[in-house]
Design a protein around this nucleic acid. Structure first.
Lengths: 200, 200
DNA sequence: GAAAAGAACGAACGGTCGTTCTATTTTCAG
DNA sequence: CTGAAAATAGAACGACCGTTCGTTCTTTTC
């Protein structure tokens, strides 16, 4: 009857496996994912896990995609409820901070950049696609802030997206090394200075 | 006679191995280092390579230290020839950009942060020590710029170091994903805006 | 309730990993 | 030139890797 929601056993266990895999990849990166360890975490046999993905690479791709979807669901989507322009931009940054806190031990998407930016292959392509997609979303939100006259008319949208991204990168970086709270404080302070300097 | 410089065969081949290992770690990270592949690159046997370091971990530590030393030699040291204050700060940033360009495929020190910030162990400790040491150097150079009245008296030294570091992080990030030249342009532009906003 | 289809298992494969041990070669002082 | 010491080679180890395959258990369908 219901074609889209019909869970079926297969899809259900696949999601369960992916959930475990995502948790593992948060700590050890996508390269640290091993099917044996994952099977153990999922209370299944190696071959049982393997059968749900044709290869380790496809598993990694699925985990990466799950990460991207969760990032969007937690950072971008909730921010769409606040009015477009600077308020929404601030909401994105704050949600992003919460994301960084939740994944203080390591964000799958971010470690994937480090793992695959120098290589080539399907994972590299997926990372680039995902990163440039998110950067685009950020630029779109910035563009709206310009349209709403919350930011100066001459604002270089890509440049500002670049700079915001920089502060979120260093947030992840410093949170992992020196502790989250100070990093969060410095990040929000830096972003505030940034927005102020781009105001009309 | 000469106690400090006596090279000896041992030290020489050890350096040769480390040089190869460093090059490998630039592409694959410290976790990607395998003794077998390294031995192949060094035209030696696995056990021959292994004998120079008591364990893989000690090898990784040695490579990390070599990376830190080379970073200092290429980024900080040359900048000490320019007058302290803003000029030296700019020199550091420019040398850092060159560093990022040379290691566009991946910087050992940076990927080490991603690989070990969530774990614990000797490598984690070494990464933290090395990163906070470098941040301290950066803060020292900024403090001098304040003393020279190149930057405002009320400058938050740690905050500015945090922000500069952010732009160098995103430089590495974007250079690997989207190409170096645009990333360099945006980074220098961002740093200029930053310095201007901290002026007296 | 039997038959067909799907999902998970368990064993095994060839390979690579870090590490250990012994033998061989190379280095260097006397 | 000789003999001790250091450096390297080579083989082997147990463990884990991703993957394959045939079997077994479970679910669905008629």
């Amino acid at each position: 009857m219901n074609t889209t929601t019909a869970p079926g056993k297969r899809a259900a266990t696949r999601e369960m496996i992916l959930d475990r895999a995502y948790a593992m990849a948060c700590n050890d990166g996508l390269e640290g994912l091993s099917i044996g360890t994952l099977a153990q975490a999922a209370d299944m046999s190696k071959s049982g896990v393997f059968a749900h993905f044709g290869s380790r690479e496809d598993l990694q791709l699925a985990v990466l995609e799950l990460g991207a979807q969760r990032f969007m669901d937690n950072v971008l989507l909730p921010a769409l409820k606040t009015p477009r322009g600077l308020p929404r931009l601030r909401a994105i940054v704050e949600n992003w901070c919460d994301w960084a806190q939740r994944y203080e031990r390591g964000c799958v998407l971010l470690s994937a950049v480090g793992e695959y930016d120098g290589r080539d292959g399907a994972l590299h392509d997926a990372v680039v696609r995902q990163q440039s997609g998110w950067r685009g979303q950020l630029e779109k939100a910035i563009g709206q802030a310009v349209d709403e006259a919350h930011l100066g008319r001459g604002t270089d949208v890509s440049q500002l997206a670049f700079e915001i991204y920089a502060f979120m990168l260093v947030l992840h970086h410093d949170a992992g090394l020196f502790g989250f709270e100070e990093a969060r404080r410095r990040t929000l302070s830096a972003v505030d200075r940034l927005f102020a300097s781009y105001r009309t």
